[in-house]
């Protein structure tokens, strides 16, 4: 294998890693959009919160009375952060977002944007914007593995696998289970689903909690790779929104595939023409908007 091929493969693997984060975040946005009909601008903030729950659970919980010496480890954080953030999401849905459904989706977008600014502003006030490293990576995930064509960090490989696993699991739940049939039906005609006796308001709360829980999960997985900072969500979510525009809202598999492909496209661009690596996704976005405004996997019914 020549040097160039190795370079390409290495960058593609790193791209796949980023793509897995794009996938899990845009998937959450798609699930939320399907039920709430709003674009959740607070998604990046919940991603950041997930990382902070992991970080603070590890470093700072031990100051609390009764928890002296407690350090939430990585595995615990993978479970607890999505739960905590998901519950917070449900609370926000019940107390705020819920009141806007009748007003059209622009209002939901503005509200969640405001929530994102508040959460991010609070954290910027108390934490270093340049980031704090998360040191609770388990030993088993340290080091590198030999992929044949390169040595790849074990943790990054793990983060690709676990993110794809979660994406696939979500897809299976939505497309293949009874609960998923309520969700799919709710996307099409929530009133009718409720008229059949399904507690749709509760289903919507749970969906929002689940969607932002996914973002928090991604935040925990990202914490050992990127440093944990109040603006990590903002940086990530701008790209993720471009991914969503390219993929089109509403299709779960579309969100996953688009996320992964665009991550790899970014990686590839780093080898071929590095200066464009940060903009290639936005370039794609413009092309897709011109050619197919509803996105690659979007259906017309979701277009405005």
């Amino acid at each position: 294998m020549n040097f160039f091929t190795r370079m390409v493969l290495a960058q593609m693997m790193l791209g796949l890693n980023n793509g897995a984060f794009y996938a899990i975040l845009s998937l959450g946005l798609a699930v939320i959009f399907g039920q709430l009909n709003i674009i959740n601008f607070a998604h990046g903030a919940f991603y950041m919160l997930g990382a902070f729950v992991a970080l603070l659970g590890y470093t700072s919980l031990s100051v609390l009375p009764g928890l002296a010496g407690f350090h939430m480890n990585y595995w615990e954080a993978l479970l607890i952060a999505p739960l905590v953030v998901g519950l917070l999401g449900m609370l926000i849905e019940r107390t705020m977002i819920r009141h806007l459904y009748k007003l059209g989706n622009l209002y939901g977008l503005l509200l969640t944007f405001g929530i994102a600014l508040i959460i991010q502003g609070l954290f910027t006030n108390y934490f270093n914007v340049s980031g704090t490293s998360y040191n609770a990576m388990p030993d088993i995930l340290r080091g590198t593995v030999n992929l044949g064509f390169m040595r790849f960090p074990t943790y990054r490989l793990w983060s690709i696998i676990i993110s794809l696993g979660v994406c696939l699991g979500t897809w299976l739940i939505v497309e293949r289970t009874k609960l998923g049939s309520y969700l799919r039906a709710g996307t099409e005609n929530a009133d009718l689903v409720q008229a059949f006796g399904v507690n749709v308001p509760l289903m919507i709360s749970l969906t929002y909690g689940f969607g932002v829980g996914l973002a928090a999960f991604a935040g925990v997985v990202a914490a050992p790779i990127y440093s944990v900072s109040p603006i990590m969500g903002e940086e990530m979510i701008i790209t993720v929104f471009a991914v969503v525009v390219i993929g089109g809202m509403g299709s779960i598999m579309g969100a996953i595939i688009t996320g992964l492909c665009l991550g790899m496209l970014e990686g590839l661009t780093k080898v071929i023409y590095p200066p464009a690596a940060n903009t290639v996704i936005f370039f794609m976005m413009i092309v897709v908007l011109l050619v197919k405004p509803t996105g690659l996997f979007g259906k017309d019914q979701y277009g405005e």
Partner: peptide, 8 residues
């Protein structure tokens, strides 16, 4: 009552 309770 909300619709889902009526349906029930």
């Amino acid at each position: 009552l909300p619709p889902h309770r009526i349906a029930r």
